[in-house]
Amino acid sequence: MTDATETLLRVEDLRLHYQTRRGVARAVDGVSFDLRRNEALVILGESGCGKSSLAKALMRVLPRNVQHFGGHVMLGETDIMALNDERFRREIQWNRIALVMQAAMNALNPVVRVGEQVAEPLRVHRGWSKERALERVAETFRKVGVSTDFIQRYPFELSGGMRQRVVLAMALVTEPDLVILDEPTSALDVLTQAAIMNVLKRIKRDEGTSFILITHDVATSSELADRVALMYAGQIVEFSDARQFFHDPAHPYSKMLMDSVPRLHQPEAPGHIPGEPPDLINPPAGCRFADRCPSRFERCDRDPDAFSLDERRRVRCWLHEGEDA
C-alpha cells in the first residue's frame, strides 16, 4: 500500500528547446513542480505557451528538431531522465506514464477496429496475447463508459465523445501511475465534455490514478484540479492549490485570467487580457509578462525568481519578493 501523500513525480528545471529557422524556441524553459499520488495537476495557459511541449518532454516523444532537452524528472524512485531511450520506452512509456495527445481522438487508425487499437500498448509493451489483452480492454471500456460491443467497431462508427473515451481507455489500459491528458475535451460539446470529466473524476476516485490535465480553459480545469500550474511563455508563473488559485490568485497574470472567465451567474461582463504573449524565440530579458502587466515596476526588467508564498505555493513575480516562506 502506498502512502497517499507520497510524491509521485518531481520535475526540476525541465527544458525543451527547438531549433527553428528563426532561432531557438524555448518552449519549456526551466519548469519545476511536483505531483503527489492520486493528485490531479492542471497545466493552464494560452496556446503557444508550451503546454504540449511539456507533455511531450515528460513522455519523451520528441520531434527531430530538438536543440536542447534537459533537467531532472523523478518518477517515484526512478530518475527517468537518466534512462536511455531504449529503457525509457520499455519501462516508462505507457507502462508508467501514458499520454493522450492533443486531438488524439482524430488520430485513431481508421482501418483498425478500436478494440485492437486500445489493446496495442498491452501487446507491444507487455507482450500479452490478443485474448488476454482484449479481456483487459473490455474491462477498461466499462470503466470509461464505452459499451463492450464497440470493441469490434471502426473509429468512423463512433461519435466524437465515444472516440475520446476510447483514447482515454488506451491510456488507462496498462494501469499507469500517471496519465497526461492534453486538451482532452477542447473539441467537444458542453454535455459531452461534462460526461468525459465525470469519467475522469470516477477513475481518479476509484483507481487512484494521478493526472496531469492540460487545458487553456479555466472552467474545465476546475472540474478536476487539486493543484494548478499556470504557464506563460515556457515557464510556470504560478503554482498553487486549486482553491487558492481559483479564489485568491497571486500572480497578476493569474488575476487577469480569472477575471476573464465568463460566469453564468455574474452580472458584470468578463474582462480580458490585452496584448499577445511574447515570442519564445527571443523572449524579453526580464519578466516575460511585464509588457501586459498592470502592476509593472522597475524591478520587472530583471527575471523574477519563483518565490514560495507558503509550503505549496510558488509565484514568479517581484511583487511577492520578501513574502518568501
Binding site: 465534455q193 473524476k201 470516477r202 472552467a219 484540479a225 481559483f246 472567465v261 460566469r263 455574474q266
Partner: peptide
C-alpha cells in the same frame, strides 16, 4: 447543469 461557475469544489462532484 453541465456547466458550473469556476470553483475548486467542482472537482468533487459529478455533474
Amino acid at each position: 447543469a453541465a456547466i458550473a461557475d469556476v470553483d475548486a469544489d467542482n472537482a468533487l462532484e459529478e455533474r
